[in-house]
């Protein structure tokens, strides 16, 4: 069966002979978008984070066939080497990565996280559920679904905080 979905603003048709294909493998193997990484394939690392209709999800834990008509944003849709998004530029400035493998997931996740924060969503470390403040502890908790074994966490937090402040 064919499914049609919008990826990074572009309408794409994905021929699917096998419903077992995850959204992650569809992106990487069928749609030539290998920027989204596979770290664990079980939703345990966040390397495959993409946005589904504006919300960050693990692309490994959903089937491509379930996304007829959906809008997907991957790392390739956020910026290019010639036109970086503010977060992408901040990750470079703050050295928010080393090996770079978790980085697309971190950046997509952080992009969506800032949107969640702007909507007023609380987190597990929010003292006040109704009015969370984006301090470092909040950023750390909200980004804990993205593991980084090079352990650039402090730099990731710096990059996100700076971007949040400059956007705000």
């Amino acid at each position: 069966m064919d499914i049609t979905l919008t990826i990074n603003g572009e309408r794409r048709t994905l021929p699917l002979e096998d419903p077992r294909v995850t959204l992650l493998d569809a992106l990487r193997q069928h749609l030539d978008l290998p920027g989204t990484k596979k770290g664990c394939d079980h939703g345990q690392c966040g390397a495959c984070t993409v946005m589904l209709n504006g919300r960050r999800i693990n692309a490994c834990l959903t089937l491509a066939v379930m996304h007829q008509g959906d809008e997907i944003t991957t790392i390739e849709g956020l910026g290019t080497p010639e036109a970086l998004s503010p977060l992408q530029a901040a990750f470079i400035r703050h050295d928010g990565f080393q090996c770079g493998y978790c980085t697309p997931g971190q950046i997509v996740s952080a992009t969506a996280m800032l949107a969640e924060f702007r909507e007023g969503w609380p987190s597990n470390v929010s003292n006040d559920l109704s009015a969370p403040r984006l301090d470092d502890e909040e950023i750390r908790e909200r980004m804990s679904g993205n593991l980084c074994r090079c352990s650039c966490y402090p730099n990731i937090v710096d990059a996100i905080r700076e971007t949040a402040e400059s956007v705000a």
């Binding site: 939703g43 966040g46 984070t49 834990l61 996740s109 559920l129």
Partner: peptide
């Protein structure tokens, strides 16, 4: 958040933001 904060808290303590979105 206002009336059943326990529920918000429990959900937010689970998994990751990505998983909670799905």
């Amino acid at each position: 958040r206002r009336d059943w904060p326990l529920l918000s808290r429990a959900i937010l303590a689970g998994a990751s933001a990505q998983i909670r979105n799905r």
